[in-house]
Write a protein that binds this DNA or RNA. Sequence first.
DNA 1: TCTTGACCTAAAGTTAAGTTTAAGTATTAT
DNA 2: ATAATACTTAAACTTAACTTTAGGTCAAGA
Lengths: 146, 146
Amino acid sequence: MYTIGQISKLFHLPTSTLRYYDKEGLFPNIERSSGIRRFGEKEMEALRVIECLKKSGLEIKDIKQFMEWCAQGSSTYPQRREFFLRQKEVVEGEIRKMEKVLDMIRFKCWYYEQAIQDGNEDRLHEMLPDHLPKEIQLLYDHAHED
Amino acid sequence: MYTIGQISKLFHLPTSTLRYYDKEGLFPNIERSSGIRRFGEKEMEALRVIECLKKSGLEIKDIKQFMEWCAQGSSTYPQRREFFLRQKEVVEGEIRKMEKVLDMIRFKCWYYEQAIQDGNEDRLHEMLPDHLPKEIQLLYDHAHED
DNA sequence: TCTTGACCTAAAGTTAAGTTTAAGTATTAT
DNA sequence: ATAATACTTAAACTTAACTTTAGGTCAAGA
């Protein structure tokens, strides 16, 4: 069992954030000894899940819902499964978007390399939007589609 | 040339957001005819870049800096190239993090499927942290590393 | 003519996720 | 015993990125 200060160091989170999470209900039924929070394995796994769900774009209140399901026991396994299945879709979508963002950035890296070599953007403007070198055209099209 | 309302529809952004971006300096030297903003190809490409850079985690003030370099002409090609090279690193890192998040979620999907089948988490608790089925262990380890 | 709709500005309001402050209690080290 | 540390709370503050509000201009259609 750990105190809030130890957990703060282990997870690189300020104690104020941990208290805020607790206040928001992210550690339902956390143990206390004479007022002081005791973080156990359950709370540590909760924190790992919190980090993960935050990265996946969820708000604190949605994460709280999940933690409440956990506290309710085996009757909520189906909700918890549905919750992660849904979040899987969300994150897969996010990653696809980020790949598009990355291709836009790769294109811009190439673009400015050419601009530096040429000293201007004249040749580049002539190539746009569909007379770019093959590899670059793929990046450009992916980044600009939809 | 388009009005703010047309651009709002084309980019699915409220006009209030477009005006906010303008106020924050994201369209330096945007044309106006009797007070009304005229969005041209330059502003449309700016908007595509804004969407992209926002997704990559940048704040409006950093994006403004880039737009100012663009307005300054060819002397800032090197800064702009460095800017995108840096952002490429950032986004590649983001994607790696999201792949980790995804593996945690995949693990949890499997976990709750097992829990539903078993009716409890006893067998799962016995398998943790390193006696999971091969494929699942890979997900778990990737998600929990560091 | 008048009213509808699209544009404009400045300023105030909103929201989420913390962070900071102020005041107090408890544990640990010397 | 006492001083320094680590814990506690409630409430106010912060920040970014919008959004809303209130008031105004201007052009086109009934």
